[in-house]
């Protein structure tokens, strides 16, 4: 169970807890941030993503790290950004089934979402949700 921290979810459009997840975190419109305290959702905010450049995988890593994110939920991710997130201390969780943000966030807080493993990384376009 997640007691406290900031969850980031790559999101489509305006994001938000009732929004939908983006399939490729590097190309998402916004990141939905969910702040958790004492195992409860305390605050929801959004952050605009940055332009994506080939090989610029560390831009979102640094963006989320600078914004105190502690956990990220993805549908798919390449090896380089996964290693980058791990190396800056951001745990990366995986769900490639559900498009909605809220249920996967609640699952993560409840401890029902698995961390992505190195053999689940994808090459290229990211995973599908």
């Amino acid at each position: 169970m997640m007691k406290s921290g900031r969850i980031a979810v790559p999101s489509n459009g305006q994001g938000g807890l009732d929004g939908t997840r983006a399939g490729h975190f590097g190309h998402c419109d916004v990141f939905t941030f969910v702040d958790v305290e004492d195992g409860e959702i305390k605050e929801v905010s959004i952050l605009q993503n940055q332009e994506h450049a080939q090989g610029g995988c560390m831009v979102p890593v640094n963006l989320l790290s600078d914004n105190r994110v502690t956990a990220l939920i993805v549908g798919g991710i390449g090896m380089r950004p996964l290693m980058g997130f791990k190396q800056v201390g951001i745990d990366v969780y995986h769900d490639d089934q559900r498009a909605e943000i809220e249920p996967v966030v609640k699952d993560l807080i409840a401890g029902n979402l698995a961390e992505i493993t190195n053999d689940q990384v994808c090459g290229g376009g990211g995973g599908q949700i």
Binding site: I46, L47, E51, G56, M58
Partner: peptide
């Protein structure tokens, strides 16, 4: 791009 990324907090 990287120089534009540091922002204090989400909206």
């Amino acid at each position: 791009i990287a120089s534009r990324t540091s922002k204090p907090k989400g909206e």
